[in-house]
């Protein structure tokens, strides 16, 4: 893991139902990553970055302000994409997990990452 964010991801990954997490730069490059199962990290990072870029523009055009968070539920799992100041944080969850508690933890993790990546 890079940029000393391992402890933040490690904390996230200890939460019940979290299957892994990743920090992605604005350019779609993996900054830090920790997943229990194999995933193609580079591809997921690129896809996440593309989603962010697409949603940010669409929300502004629909006059809903900038992008904050995207929660996608699939047939097998759930993913949370949350925008930080300079990064995008991605958390993979079990499908049945309620986002109440995990959501707060993710928000705190993003704030901490923001602090560490603040130039």
């Amino acid at each position: 893991m890079a940029h000393g964010m391992g402890d933040i991801l490690d904390r996230l990954n200890r939460i019940e139902g979290v299957k892994g997490s990743m920090v992605v730069g604005r350019d779609g490059i993996v900054v830090a990553s920790d997943f229990a199962d194999f995933i193609n990290e580079d591809a997921v990072a690129a896809v996440s970055s593309a989603i962010l870029s697409s949603l940010d523009g669409a929300l502004k055009r629909l006059e809903m302000g900038g992008f904050k968070r995207f929660v996608i539920t699939g047939s097998d799992a759930k993913i949370v994409l949350m925008k930080g100041r300079n990064t995008l944080v991605l958390v993979l969850l079990r499908k049945d997990i309620n986002l109440g508690f995990v959501g707060v933890e993710i928000r705190e993790a993003v704030a901490e990452i923001d602090e560490r990546t603040h130039l």
């Binding site: 591809a43 629909l62 995207f70 097998d76 993913i79």
Partner: peptide
């Protein structure tokens, strides 16, 4: 948005897309 998300859901190992909540600064979709 749906098209790119549904495609991405497969790539990200989520299986087939079921639902999504997009949170903007002044409202959600």
């Amino acid at each position: 948005i749906y098209r790119s998300t549904a495609r991405s859901a497969q790539q990200m190992g989520l299986g087939s897309f079921e639902d999504g909540v997009i949170e903007g600064e002044s409202g959600n979709i």
